[in-house]
Design a protein around this nucleic acid. Structure first.
Length: 599
RNA sequence: GGGCCGUUAGUUUAGCCGGUUAAAACAAUCGCCUGUCACGCGAUAGAGCACGGGUUCGAAUCCCGUACGGCCCGCCA
């Protein structure tokens, strides 16, 4: 071992001990006759002092050290006088007298400062950070995130192992399947013309594990989807994939609930995060209910601003926009932005209107309640005083409030008001950054409300089990069929999805038919139907997104911050320069015609 | 595939309704300093403004295109 201690562990009790430390030179403060070096490693920073009167040779070497040099230092731990204690350092009560120093490696001047107090205010250009990610990893922010990530994964492994789960690895080289995201393809050298695909999730394998009797399975699984990235989405990401046999929905939810709550408490106790769980137990909210109250299946419950339905009230009213929407079978919904009157200017309201229009709404009607209860609104004269008053009363609006309306097909009204609500929550400062709001959305419909190419589209995926009592509806009114799908929602983000799966071949076959599978498509899944014919147990599971949950727990603005080596928006790895052209020889072996960079 | 925003010393930024030597802080280099820990003091060097084209007497500043990065729509069962 090149060291006896780390740079983060020496305390007052270690005074007098002769230690050897290794680390990077964080800073060198040269006082002419005295040099201080802050030596940094993963665990912390320790001050080393070099005195020429005691060790001239060490002092001279320390004099040549520069930022990010790798050094090994030997010396005695000295206590610091009270007035010299640095309270900002865990090792601030001591320092090491540098009796010997070896430069293990020199360093060029780094392209950005690794650690400094200015870092808090300075956001280093992200392109540069990603190019030098190995240096970025030395910085406190990314380092912390990597540590917490490990702590989370370790907690999960222990939690599930303690509950009889087996961690099983499933193949990365697998088969492309229709539907879903675009696959990453890998040419199969031994079978020219054919391709493996990288898994979008271990879905099929984990179901086959259930058939195989591995009744509790989990995996920290890399998932790959060849789609454009977003702030909370990378092409390559990690899910906690888990599946259980002989369970019903609430068994899966109970498990995930206990895991999430104890995980958050664990990370809180260790001081890694500071979050207050809003509601325990985690509320399980029906899809229809959240769509009505929040307009979206992943509600942000950190604030209220719930949406009300006033369709019946405005049926046949004098305001044509509302009346027509109802007449066409649409809905009219409203939400009361408490206190918004004092905060939102006319131009803010215009911005909200633009937001609603972006989500397909035709406009955004509103009623502002002024002091004394007077109503300020372009639509009151059409609604009439009586109806306006009734609406204000129903919404519980008082002076200083603004009521916003959505009137359209329910899908449009819901979506538009959902985004207006989210924007208001932020604008009106209704979000406590320390609060974390978890909820399960349950009772999803089996199919999307709008058909795709004349076929039903699964809301979740094609292996989701319909409700038993709705199975007859598969033949008569499939859009009414509810399923055993469920999502975990955190602060308005979908962070896990799962379902009880189909284990009955006949039902699976029926679903294939409804989603418009061709014979060819079905052949691709024949192995699943075949497997189900050999005594598939009832089973279900869930797949929480590790990256996305971490991002929310750590208040990071994007998913890249919680990944060691993330890719840019267009899927490039700036550190190693992937993707890249390959040697034509490699292509030839794969039976692929040579592709030239720029013909 | 589309929309919006950005790109100025090593870094973070200023300058951007055109005007002659592109400014600052931090980092770096050198010198001085025995108690600093955002050390201090002094000095030095460092960019021609992402790239290409255009407008103009004159472009970091205006226009067009390209590249790269970010956010978003599409896409993401």
């Amino acid at each position: 071992m090149l060291r006896t201690h780390t740079c983060g562990e020496l305390k007052k009790e270690d005074v007098g001990t002769y230690v050897t430390l290794c680390g990077w030179v964080q800073s060198r403060r040269d006082h002419g006759g005295l040099i201080f070096i802050d030596l940094r490693d993963r665990y912390g920073t320790t001050q080393v002092v070099f005195n020429p009167e005691k060790q001239k040779r060490s002092f001279d070497i320390a004099d040549t050290a520069r930022s990010e040099y790798v050094a090994q230092v030997e010396g005695t731990v000295l206590g610091r006088p009270d007035e010299m204690v640095n309270p900002n350092l865990t090792t601030g009560a001591i320092e090491v007298e540098g009796q010997a120093i070896t430069v293990l490696n020199e360093s060029q001047t780094p392209p950005f400062e690794i650690e400094s107090d200015q870092e808090a205010e300075r956001a280093i250009n992200e392109e540069r950070r990603l190019t030098y990610r190995y240096l970025d990893l030395r910085r406190p922010r990314v380092k912390r995130n990597i540590v917490v990530r490990h702590e989370m994964v370790r907690f999960i492994r222990n939690f599930l192992s303690d509950r009889k789960f087996l961690e099983v690895e499933t193949p990365l080289l697998t088969k492309s399947t229709p539907e879903g995201a675009r696959d990453y393809l890998v040419p199969a050298r031994q079978h020219p013309g054919t391709f493996y695909s990288l898994p979008q999730s271990p879905q099929q394998y984990k179901q086959l594990l259930m058939v195989g009797g591995i009744d509790r399975y989990f995996q920290i699984a890399k998932c790959l989807r060849d789609e454009d990235s977003r702030g909370d989405r990378q092409a390559e990401f990690t899910q906690l994939d888990l599946e259980m046999s002989f369970v019903e929905r609430d068994d899966v939810l109970d498990l995930v609930e206990e895991m999430m709550i104890t995980l958050i408490e664990h990370l809180n106790e260790r001081g890694y995060i500071k979050k207050r769980i809003l509601q325990k137990p985690i509320p399980r909210l029906a899809y229809d209910d959240v769509m009505l109250r929040y307009g979206i299946d992943k509600p942000d419950l950190r604030f209220g601003l719930e949406i009300s339905d006033i369709t019946e009230m405005v049926n046949g009213c004098g305001f044509a926009v509302f009346a027509d929407a109802v007449k066409k079978g649409g809905v009219v919904r409203a939400l009361n932005a408490r206190g918004a009157g004092d905060v939102l200017s006319r131009s803010h309201i215009d911005e909200l209107t633009e937001l609603a229009k972006k989500h397909r709404a035709k406009g955004l009607a509103y009623i502002k309640v002024k002091d004394g209860g007077e109503l300020d609104s372009p639509i009151v004269k059409f609604l009439g005083d009586e109806l306006s008053g009734a609406i204000v009363k129903k919404l519980g609006a008082h002076a200083g409030d603004i009521i916003f309306f959505g009137a359209d097909h329910h899908l449009i009204a819901e979506e538009a008001l959902a985004y207006v609500r989210l924007d208001l929550g932020r604008r009106l400062n209704m979000i406590d950054p320390e609060v974390i709001a978890l909820s399960f959305t349950i009772d999803f419909p089996l199919f999307e409300p709008e058909m795709v190419d004349g076929h039903y589209a699964p809301m979740h995926h094609m292996f989701t089990m319909p409700r038993k009592e709705d199975i007859s509806l598969l033949d008569t009114d499939p859009l009414k069929v509810k399923s055993w799908q469920y999502d975990l929602v955190i602060n308005g983000n979908e962070t896990a999805g799962g379902s009880i799966r189909i284990h009955v071949p006949d039902i699976q076959q029926k679903i294939f038919d409804l989603i418009g599978f061709s014979e060819e498509d079905e052949k691709n899944f024949a192995h699943m139907l075949e497997a189900f014919r050999y005594g598939a147990p009832p089973h279900g599971g869930m797949a929480p997104g590790i990256d996305r949950i971490l991002m929310l727990l750590l208040d990071e603005p994007n998913i890249r911050e919680v990944m060691a080596f993330p890719k840019t928006g267009d899927g490039s790895d700036l550190v190693i320069g992937a993707p890249a052209f390959v040697d034509p020889k490699q292509l030839k072996e794969l039976g692929i015609q040579s592709l030239t960079p720029n013909p």
